[in-house]
Design a protein around this nucleic acid. Structure first.
Length: 171
DNA sequence: TTAGTGATATCC
DNA sequence: GATATCACTAAA
């Protein structure tokens, strides 16, 4: 069944590990549906998190992170890859969960490429978008926490946080 | 290991 | 206006 707004309206530290194992569903404009199980997420949490895009405050790009939970935050990385995040928690508290990987698509850039997700999705809500949502099929997985990747610029404290969550064996 | 790619934040 | 930086990937 489809995850409702209440699922995302919590702290990203709760949402990120729970999102692992859920099914990301994309309805394509040309017809057809892609269903992929989420295998890896990361949490970016607040202006205090020196790895988070909101570390400079409410900039033009990071402004989306301050919006209501369920808002999609899609931005271009390294000039090539679109990365998909879902905003979580309260309005005006900037935090989000990055969908890092799904089954068969190990990497946030490859994932969005497969799903046909680009900057035009930025600011849409996963709660109202007819072409993208998340479902729970009841399947549960053991979760392995790990350090986040690609954030060398962050403080040592933040680099060491175990805010990446990977699916391991089926429970 | 390295190039490729372009938006963003920050400095003038 | 300029430039350094970047939540990555594919090819070698």
């Amino acid at each position: 069944m489809k995850l409702g707004p209440e699922f995302f309206h919590r702290d990203c530290l709760e949402v990120a590990p729970e999102l692992v194992g859920k099914i990301l569903v994309r309805r394509l404009p040309e017809g057809g549906e892609i269903r992929l199980r989420i295998t890896e997420t990361e949490c970016y949490r607040g202006e205090e998190d020196t790895a988070c895009h909101a570390r400079f405050g409410r900039t033009k790009r990071a402004g989306v992170l301050y919006r209501e939970s369920g808002t999609l935050y899609v931005y271009l990385c390294y000039g090539i890859h679109w990365l998909l995040n879902i905003v979580t928690g309260e309005v005006d508290v900037p935090q989000a969960v990055l969908i890092r990987a799904c089954e068969g698509f190990p990497g946030p850039g490859r994932l969005t490429k497969r799903l046909g997700i680009d900057g035009s999705f930025n600011g849409l809500s996963i709660n109202s978008c007819p072409c993208l949502w998340v479902e729970d099929d009841g399947q549960r997985f053991r979760i392995i926490p790990d350090r986040r990747v690609g954030i060398d610029y962050a403080s040592e404290e933040d680099r060491n946080r175990l805010w990446r969550f990977k699916a391991a064996d089926r429970l």
